[in-house]
Design a protein around this nucleic acid. Structure first.
Lengths: 170, 170
DNA sequence: TATTGTTATACTCTATAACTATA
DNA sequence: TATAGTTATAGAGTATAACAATA
């Protein structure tokens, strides 16, 4: 990682490596957070809505485990989603303890809108590279991402960095 | 951006672009947060300590503006840093309203430790690429970072994504 | 007895504004 | 009157645990 001063200097020197990673990360992360800010729960809400929309209807617990959220959080988020008419809770005929969370047309529409926004954020972030280098960067990132998500979890100095199970801004 | 299901599928397909960016971002962001978690203020604390260590002593307000934090936050963080003996507050002879924040040896040592950890996180994240592709990715990221930090701010769907003035994990 | 979902509680961050002391 | 720093208050977000209904 770099220092603040190095970062400032880097505009002239461009020497530090970690600084680049961090800067891009933060730029994208912020913009992505921002893009989904008007959805209840922000980026976590986006992950949940995504999972809800693209999987066949599941219980809240299943959703929670799938996107790595606590049960209680999912309750709150689904409450908000229902209030915003993005999803509905439908009784599960076989297990009356659980709800099946189902996306509405409004929810699907909203999700597409958010996905479009996030695509735009990406393009914006990667704009400085040309078309070709942009593709190159994406390819390299994809390789990292695949092994990060599918292979070994990223080992770090503390234990809670688990294997990432999915996408989500920031 | 991608969907959860696509993300899962991507382990086989590797098709989605935004998913890669997001996954790497999150993996690194989490690990970096984690690496500095034991510092008061986490990533923000790191940024502040960095700035304090590598600049000549400055007032809290100057530091706040430099790293993009609120004055009050800096007060809290410096309090914590002082308690942890990472910095000292020294009276400014020319303006008795202000403090000069000065890093201690302990603080400098701690900072180096954190920087080492963050370097390790980077290496870990980029390990899947070989040495060469890793360098390639870093070069591309650096180009993006330079224009992000030095050039135009990243345009997004909302207004608060400002020009990034420095580094900092996550 | 275990599990799904809900509710209640508390805790951490952060942001805002009021306050003091100096300039 | 304006500025540097501090303190107080409140709010959002999150985590934990207790609870009700069902299996």
């Amino acid at each position: 990682m770099s220092t603040q001063q190095e970062a400032d200097a880097a505009v002239g020197i461009h020497a530090d490596l970690g600084w680049a990673l961090t800067t891009v990360l933060r730029a994208y992360g912020r913009a992505a957070d921002c893009a989904v800010a008007d959805l209840p729960g922000g980026s976590r809400g986006f992950r949940l809505l995504s999972a809800t929309a693209h999987d066949c209807p599941r219980s809240q617990l299943a959703l929670a485990q799938h996107v790595g959220l606590d049960r209680t959080v999912v309750t709150y988020l689904v409450d908000d989603f229902v209030a915003a008419a993005l999803v509905t809770r439908q009784a599960d005929p076989v297990d009356r303890r659980t709800w099946r969370v189902v996306v509405t047309d409004i929810g699907r529409c909203r999700l597409e809108q958010l996905e479009a926004r996030l695509r735009r954020v990406e393009d914006e972030v990667l704009r400085p590279l040309g078309r070709q280098d942009s593709a190159q960067l994406r390819a390299l990132l994809r390789r990292v991402a695949v092994s990060t998500a599918g292979g070994e979890p990223v080992a770090t100095s503390c234990g809670d960095v688990t294997r990432l199970s999915g996408p989500g801004p920031a």
